[in-house]
Design a protein around this nucleic acid. Sequence first.
DNA 1: AGGCATCAAGTAAACGTTTACATAAGTCAA
DNA 2: TTGACTTATGTAAACGTTTACTTGATGCCT
Lengths: 331, 331
Amino acid sequence: MSAMKRKTSIKEVAKAAGVSIASVSRVINSETGKVSPAVRTRVEKAIADLNYRPNWIGQALRGQTNNTYAMVISSIQNNFFSSVAWEIESRLNDRGAAMLLFNSNEDAALQERCLKEVRSRQVAGVFMLCALDSPQLHAIAGQTPMIFINRKVPSLPDVPFIGIDDRSAAMELARAILQEHEGEIALVSGPQSSATSRARLDGFRAEFEARNRPVADESIKEAELSMESGYACAVALLEDRRRYSAIVCGNDQIAYGVYRRCRELGLSIPVETAIYGFDDNPLNQWLAPWLNTVRVPYREYAEAAIGVMDKLHKGDAVGPTILPYDLVLRR
Amino acid sequence: MSAMKRKTSIKEVAKAAGVSIASVSRVINSETGKVSPAVRTRVEKAIADLNYRPNWIGQALRGQTNNTYAMVISSIQNNFFSSVAWEIESRLNDRGAAMLLFNSNEDAALQERCLKEVRSRQVAGVFMLCALDSPQLHAIAGQTPMIFINRKVPSLPDVPFIGIDDRSAAMELARAILQEHEGEIALVSGPQSSATSRARLDGFRAEFEARNRPVADESIKEAELSMESGYACAVALLEDRRRYSAIVCGNDQIAYGVYRRCRELGLSIPVETAIYGFDDNPLNQWLAPWLNTVRVPYREYAEAAIGVMDKLHKGDAVGPTILPYDLVLRR
DNA sequence: AGGCATCAAGTAAACGTTTACATAAGTCAA
DNA sequence: TTGACTTATGTAAACGTTTACTTGATGCCT
């Protein structure tokens, strides 16, 4: 085992084929017509014999574009996020690009560290899947093409955003909820530091109030974007036998946590208490048929993200991309 | 917006600080003592002023190590796999390394394409989370440190493997199942092209036969490692009112698909039919409390993977790492 | 035959680093 | 004062590519 063979370089291929490295390069980049058939075949044979693959680092250093993108994701545990990441990765791969994955874990310090790495690596573009506001984010903006997906950062209004209209989705869901439920309603929102969570909570409250059924303050909890935190909020919410006809959550992860607590308390879902989420993790149709939610078009997110990135590379100005959503009511 | 600023290079920092690029380099790599305090402060000021970050590509080209690893994962949809990937990513990040993520989607052609990319990029190491046998895999072995996680490739016995003893886990689970269920038992195994799936099926059958309760051929299906495929197998398995006391699946994803079909048929889980899986996706405790499974220690996988990678870099020979598992019976 | 395109192949510079080596300046002992 | 040693800094080569430019050969036109 021990020492690994040094990788073969273009020089060795050139020597083996008895040509200059320039010719090898020309063959690799298949500039048809710039090289004679005889040389081409000899070089191709040498490449095959030596099992040569061009060293990407050399290529990247020479040409200023390196075909590597960074994806900073706030929680790889979240099936919705990982689905978006995967869709983007697969499209990047289709064009011979690759994706560095970083998990910020919804932690500003960790995101800061990730972004420093990203900056060193001179990537061709950065996808921020739920970004937090932080200094390195500003350093990257204007230096590297960047896209915010699913959550915008208000202090960077010029960075292209891809998402849905969270406020009006929340309002539409709220209308459906009021229609369905006569009883009391609880809200477990996401962290108010996130623009997305704010917009959702805002939409819910606006609509509930407009219809004259405001939610009492003690029936509103602020969770983090995790199952654990959703669970903890549900524990608080459902203590002393208080019961709700519907519990509306800031996203699906929170809803999963709430679900667990309801199960523990023996509440029948969705008969006694209905649970509402947000995002529609693709897993729901398999594992959470009890969950009502808002379907966010993750495949279109990926499509749009790639399209916007291309435009940024061409130097075009790009505004926000607001995609349509669907209510998923599984009552 | 339009044109992005060219990134600042070491040369500009050197000019701004009025020193040579060598001095700047020395400051960056903080070789304490090799540079005078005066120069150090001037350089540090220039770095801060210009918001300079060393270009990783230059560093990588010069030193032969580039601090980037590749993770090729067979299904990012699978929460167990993505948890392992995440644990590894986080550990790599701790040491200032980064991880390229590729999704092979359990498709040999796609994996081939990913591995070609990997080879070009001259990564420091490759983590294969469920590999398929393929030519590029052999090209990488012996050229770049590589580790197989959760599934070995028999034709490459010298590549370090990290996993559990699938056969004996399956046997132990089979014993528990026989003890619990008097009625008929069905098997929905994973693809027999995978060594892991083979070992599991083998373990189940061996134990069932040893206890004189062999599974009938028509009660064994071979699924792919997806929820969809598990569903399709369950459709076939449960046609014409045939019913099972337990359905044993090759992994949790398959079990989710089986679960969906059982739900559609109105079977009460786990009373009428119990479902058994394998891996214990971390999501189970939240969303699939009905699932019995084998807990594979994903955190230890990551720990071990990093440790083995370090050893490979030192040139040490490494054998397989077999970790302990737990039965998770939620009856 | 001389001049001139056309074409294939080679030469060398450049990309941003690190680092072995050279140089210059300072310290100290004799 | 000189020689030897130490220390701080600068110079230049190297890493593996791509590509503008140069060279040399061939063919064609007049």
